[in-house]
């Protein structure tokens, strides 16, 4: 009886043990296949990332190779061919040394960033916090201007700026930013300001603050993330912008980096590709730097408003 009982118990225990073991084995197998699956996903993603980045890495590598090696060797490692001479040659290849164009670009970009921050945040405050006649209509108009291609307005803009004597100055590139013509950033900031609690405004108003002070003392400090996104995007887009700079800047001493690069590429023969690629690397450097520094803001910016 007792033996029987213990026997059954033992059998039961054994059965349970089998089942547990079976389950554990299955779990282990599942985990292993999951690990393998994950390994292949990562391998695929990394390989794909390398293919995506290869052109950029190749450009960086080629900028350190003599031109004839660029045409010979598709690899990334310059090895014995290594030379930094392309940078020196490229720097002085054009009418002005390359830093002349970099400074011009920085002037345009810096002023554009300041202009967008001021102009767009003011407009955004009005749309997000104030009630006024025609608000819905103006907001709709603002959204439509985001979609408007610059090519549609460039001809009359050119005529206008020509009449003002602004051609071949930085003004046609900067003044529109101060006048908040980049609706995208207004939209971005409106979305952000709408998310801020209104209690703060109310409290400030009870304390006797006017709108100017609420805007400047409360909304602006709280909107720093949106302002950072605006500043970074403005920097990158203006730095890369070619069309407007090509049209409005006509003499080499006013050229910005993209326009200078374009004259470089037009005058390039088979022999000067090394210096040309070196200067292209220089041109992409600041964008890459801002990308590294501001990824968080960039990703949030596109995710909430969705433009390149």
């Amino acid at each position: 009886m007792a033996i029987d009982e213990t026997g059954t118990r033992a059998r039961v225990r054994d059965g349970r043990g089998d089942r547990d073991q079976e389950r554990a084995r299955r779990r282990e197998a599942a985990e292993r296949s999951e690990r393998i699956r994950r390994f292949f996903i990562h391998a695929g993603l990394i390989l794909f990332g390398l293919v995506m980045l290869y052109p950029l890495l190749w450009m960086l590598a080629s900028s350190f190779k003599p031109t004839e090696a660029i045409f010979r060797d598709p690899g990334l490692w310059p090895g014995a061919d290594f030379t930094a001479g392309n940078y020196g040659d490229g720097w002085t290849a054009l009418e002005y040394p390359f830093h002349h164009y970099v400074i011009n670009s920085l002037i345009v970009v810096g002023a554009s960033v300041v202009g967008n921050l001021i102009g767009c945040s003011m407009a955004a405050y009005a749309f997000a916090r104030l009630e006024f006649f025609g608000k819905k209509l103006f907001f709709a108009v603002m959204l439509m201007t985001i979609m408007l291609p610059v090519h549609v307005v460039i001809v009359p803009q050119y005529i206008l700026f020509a009449n003002l004597g602004w051609i071949n100055t930085f003004l046609p590139l900067i003044v529109p930013k101060l006048l908040a013509t980049d609706g995208f950033f207004i939209f971005l900031m409106v979305q952000f300001i709408r998310g801020l609690p209104r209690d703060l405004d109310e409290a400030a108003r009870i304390d006797g603050c006017g709108h100017v002070r609420i805007f400047w003392r409360i909304i602006m400090p709280l909107s720093l993330p949106a302002l950072a996104t605006t500043a970074i995007f403005t920097f990158i887009w203006t730095w890369n912008d070619f069309f407007a700079q090509l049209i409005f800047l006509t003499s080499p001493d006013m050229y910005t980096v993209p326009v200078a690069l374009r004259t470089f590429v037009d005058s390039t023969t088979q022999t000067s590709w090394g210096p040309l690629l070196a200067m292209s690397v220089v041109a992409l450097g600041p964008v890459f730097g801002f990308f590294l520094a501001g990824q968080r803001y960039l990703v949030r910016g596109i995710a909430t408003t969705g433009i390149k």
């Binding site: 980045l53 950029l56 993209p258 690069l261 590429v265 040309l276 992409l284 964008v287 890459f288 990308f291």
Partner: peptide, 15 residues
């Protein structure tokens, strides 16, 4: 995402 930021530039067109 990086290529999206660089894709419209003169430098990448040269590349």
């Amino acid at each position: 995402y990086l290529p999206s930021l660089l894709g419209g530039s003169v430098a990448v067109a040269i590349l």
